[in-house]
């Protein structure tokens, strides 16, 4: 559970999980929603995988992620997003980008 708390305490990782609630996405599609380097995103994915909050699959050259949240973790994510663990530095997250735009890349 400690891993889950650690993973959910970061706004970027929470945003990744929120994105995956819509549909499974490739690493590239998810990265398009953030203004951070690929290595930083890879580190975030590693933390999420370590916490067992996402499942990853290789599809050709890309890696596709899908949610693996228990009901409790889902509730914690909602709680963290709404009440606490507010974003202190959101500059690296692009303000608004539709999933369709990200999917084209």
């Amino acid at each position: 559970m400690n891993y889950a708390f650690k993973a959910l305490s970061d706004p970027t990782r929470r945003r990744v999980l929120e994105l995956l609630k819509d549909r499974p996405m490739s690493a590239g599609e998810i990265a398009d929603h953030f203004e951070v380097s690929k290595s930083t995103m890879s580190a975030h994915f590693a933390v999420l995988r370590e916490a067992n909050l996402v499942a990853s699959e290789k599809d050709g050259k890309s890696v596709v992620y899908q949610l693996k949240l228990s009901v409790l973790e889902d509730a914690l994510l909602g709680f963290a997003s709404v009440f606490g663990w507010e974003l202190k530095n959101t500059q690296h997250i692009k303000p608004e980008q539709s999933p369709e735009k990200g999917a084209k890349k």
Binding site: N52, A55, E57, Q66, V71
Partner: peptide
């Protein structure tokens, strides 16, 4: 609580993985 952790590979999700998940 545990059920959503038993994820299937996407290849087993049928035509609409989003709906299945």
């Amino acid at each position: 609580n545990f059920l959503p952790k038993l994820v299937l590979p996407l290849s087993q999700r049928g035509d609409d993985p989003h709906k299945a998940i």
